[in-house]
Write a protein that binds this DNA or RNA. Structure first.
Length: 284
DNA sequence: AGCGGAATAT
DNA sequence: AATATTCCGC
């Protein structure tokens, strides 16, 4: 059984996002509106591309909520109410789409924090995905917990598979996303009573092993990034290392160039509501 | 005052 | 169904 742990751990190592994989992650959620609003158009953030990124929703009726949004009167725009068409700077974040990659990061973060310390804020920090909000994580976490719970109730046979397959256990319609990442065993067991943190030691070596390849990480406007420096030690004597930490600052070359992944493309063009899709690429 | 979490809304 | 937003207790 201890092999289990080392085993999943090895897996975990392997599954660590490689630099290349991090890129798409980092050019995430900043909408052009936001970028503009922040005047950080300097860098890049090409989101304005036809699909793949934000989307203005239809704005809700009431104009209320005037109090917030210090729009600094620049685009005073009498907002909706009368115009009611282009809510120019009605800043509203696009819905976050939890891609398998993102979810994986989420799971990894939770796994390493231990269920106990895995709270939205901490998870968010560990994930260090730039546009990610605590609310995003909280919402996802809620759903994820339900998923885990449901799974514990079942025979342990079919639950946490996921790698490559799905439907194992016979629920094809199961939570698509959740089934796509390996759920660390301990998740299903129990909330660890007192001796939390099982992680022996983060083989940071493994990370370092990645050597300094082209560590291009951050890409999007590194300006308004809420990058978290690092997490030396959160609260409890958890074993926090700086494993996932990277990206954010590091103005490497702009990668937003020919990274055109034509994937679903207009697949959803039919839809009115597009959501922020971090990275269309889907591998694991 | 903010956070975490369930409830509720879209 | 998937996310977001609200509500409430700490």
């Amino acid at each position: 059984m201890k092999e289990d742990e080392s085993n999943w751990f090895s897996k975990w190592e392997e599954e660590l996002p490689k630099p290349e994989e991090l890129i798409p992650l980092s050019q995430t959620l900043i909408t052009p509106d936001l970028a503009i609003a922040f005047d950080i158009g300097s860098s890049q953030i090409p989101l304005n591309h036809h699909h793949q990124s934000l989307q203005h929703h239809q704005q809700p009726p009431a104009i209320s909520t005037p109090s917030s949004q210090p729009n600094s009167g620049e685009f005073d725009s009498s907002e909706l109410g009368g115009g009611g068409d282009e809510p120019a700077r009605t800043l509203k974040r696009p819905r976050l789409v939890w891609t398998p990659q993102l979810h994986k990061r989420f799971v990894d973060a939770v796994a390493h924090l231990g269920i106990k310390n895995a709270v939205p804020k901490t998870i968010m920090q560990l994930m260090s995905v730039d546009g990610l909000t605590r609310e995003n994580v909280a919402s996802h976490l809620q759903k994820y917990r339900l998923y885990l719970k449901r799974m514990q109730g079942l025979s342990s046979g079919g639950g946490g598979n996921g790698a490559g397959g799905f439907g194992s256990g016979g629920d094809p319609a199961t939570d698509h996303l959740f089934a796509s990442s390996p759920v660390p065993p301990h998740f299903l067991h129990q909330s660890h009573p007192n001796s939390d943190n099982f992680l022996p030691y983060m083989p940071v070596a493994a990370l370092q092993q990645q050597h300094h390849h082209q560590q291009m990480a951050a890409v999007a406007g590194h300006h308004l990034h809420r990058h978290v420096g690092h997490f030396g030690s959160v609260t409890n004597g958890q074993s926090n290392h700086q494993f996932l930490s990277r990206q954010s600052n590091q103005p490497l070359h702009r990668v937003g160039t020919p990274v055109h992944n034509s994937y679903m493309d207009d697949l959803e063009s039919a839809k009115e509501k597009k959501a922020l899709t971090l990275f269309p690429i889907g591998d694991d």
